[in-house]
Amino acid sequence: MRKFLLPLLFIFFFILESIFVQSLPAEMFNSERILVPRFLMIAIIFLTLYGNRNHGLIYALVFGLLFDVVYTEIIGIYLFLFPLIAYLTSKVMRLLQANIVVISVVSLLGVALLELCVYELTFLINKTDMVFSMFVDLRWLPTLILNLAFIIIFAYPLKRHFEKYALSLKEE
């Protein structure tokens, strides 16, 4: 049972993103700002940093592919970016002190980088004509605020869960 807990948790976050976007009140959307939930990315970064790095990268790869196939129908963007950002954060954390505040800030930076890269790639393949300043105002900052709120609420439970997971891996 414990073995299935982690995949189930990630599948839940995967579905939660879509549910969140779908059921957020319309007025919040009509005010032009776009809030993008990046719960999956945050969970992956926490798994990479608190749990096991290699497992984190594998989850990043699998769910990146799933995200591409199910939600965007353009394969490659998230498949590439999820593992890359998980890897970068694990590199950065080698230089920094590993406490929960620092890790929260790093994961927020990871989300910021992800959002920026996705914008650049979408712009490159001509799926959007949003200019950069508009992107920052309408998408980047609101998205960061939303995800900061998510991190503040879920950082501690995620940390505890993944630390337990790392421990159970060591015991085996």
Partner: peptide, 10 residues
């Protein structure tokens, strides 16, 4: 379901 990143309105 709905695409969460909202670049592609799907």
């Amino acid at each position: 379901g709905r695409n969460p990143d909202r670049w592609h309105e799907i």
